[in-house]
């Protein structure tokens, strides 16, 4: 099942910040890091990210659990690059049969992995510490997103966990009807497609019913909406974004001073 609840202590100083501010800070921080290809700036950035983690109320163990697909992806990148990269420059470190590992290959792989982690972690932290309802509220109130989009997406999001159960039900119902694929890969593909189609039909019907129920409560009324839960964008929220920009700038500056900076463009 997909976890949509926040996993952090909600009272932590930075977790309490406005969701839009958190999102903007994460974006500023990530975008700055995309600008360089060197491994030093991302390494500094990861150190910063892990350093501020307690301020968001996220425990390291929880983060590791949430981010394991990311770590698995990172390991995959290292293995792939080490085995198949065309660039074989630098000192030879290991030579085992057809596999040659050189310092150049290892450095490129490391840089790529570090960048991926440094860019992705801020997003992971934001979504781990933000309630989806609060995010939708803040998007509407502080970022002027259309309510029809933000609330609609929120309501649809609520139905996502149902899809998993539905898939299981449809699969079992098909088996009960005498439909299975056995070991034939083509039959398996056909069964997968037809199950997915049934799931889609059900999801559309459910979505339509939900939309009608929402309109019945005036969602399409066109009168200006009021808000029950006020989201405030304070100085502290502005400072969070400024802080993220300053820290990202610091990481880039350090990389430039150390002479490792390799701009993405030019």
């Amino acid at each position: 099942m997909i976890v949509i609840e926040p996993v952090a202590a909600p009272g932590a100083p930075l977790a309490r910040r406005n969701p839009v501010a958190k999102l903007a800070a994460a974006l500023v921080f990530s975008v700055a890091l995309i600008a360089t290809l060197d491994p030093v700036a991302p390494a500094i950035a990861i150190a910063i990210e892990l350093g501020v983690l307690p301020l968001f109320g996220v425990r390291y163990r929880v983060l590791a659990r949430r981010a394991w697909p990311l770590l698995a992806g990172a390991a995959g990148i290292v293995v792939t690059l080490v085995l198949f990269a065309a660039d074989r420059s630098g000192r030879v470190l290991v030579e085992a049969g057809p596999v040659t590992v050189t310092s150049g290959v290892l450095l490129t792989a490391l840089g790529l992995v570090l960048r991926m982690l440094a860019v992705a972690l801020p997003g992971v932290i934001v979504f781990a510490t933000t309630d989806p309802t609060d995010l939708a509220d803040a998007l509407i109130q502080n970022a002027k997103a259309p309510a029809r989009f933000a609330i609609g997406a929120l309501a649809a999001f609520r139905l996502v966990p149902l899809l998993g159960q539905e898939w299981q039900m449809i699969s079992m119902a098909r088996r009960a009807r005498g439909v299975d694929a056995g070991r034939n890969p083509l039959a398996r593909l056909r069964l997968f497609v037809s199950t997915a189609f049934a799931l889609l039909v059900g999801a559309i019907r459910r979505g339509t019913r939900l939309a009608v129920a929402m309109d019945a409560r005036g969602f399409d009324a066109g009168t200006p909406r009021t808000v029950a839960r006020r989201q405030r964008f304070t100085t502290a929220d502005g400072l969070l974004i400024a802080g993220a920009a300053a820290l990202a700038g610091g990481a880039l500056a350090a990389s430039i001073l150390l002479g490792t900076f390799r701009p993405l463009l030019g």
């Binding site: 949509i4 309501a155 609520r158 019913r209 409560r217």
Partner: peptide, 9 residues
């Protein structure tokens, strides 16, 4: 259907 008329969490 209760499932498709509740909007919020």
């Amino acid at each position: 259907d209760p499932e498709t008329q509740l909007v919020m969490a």
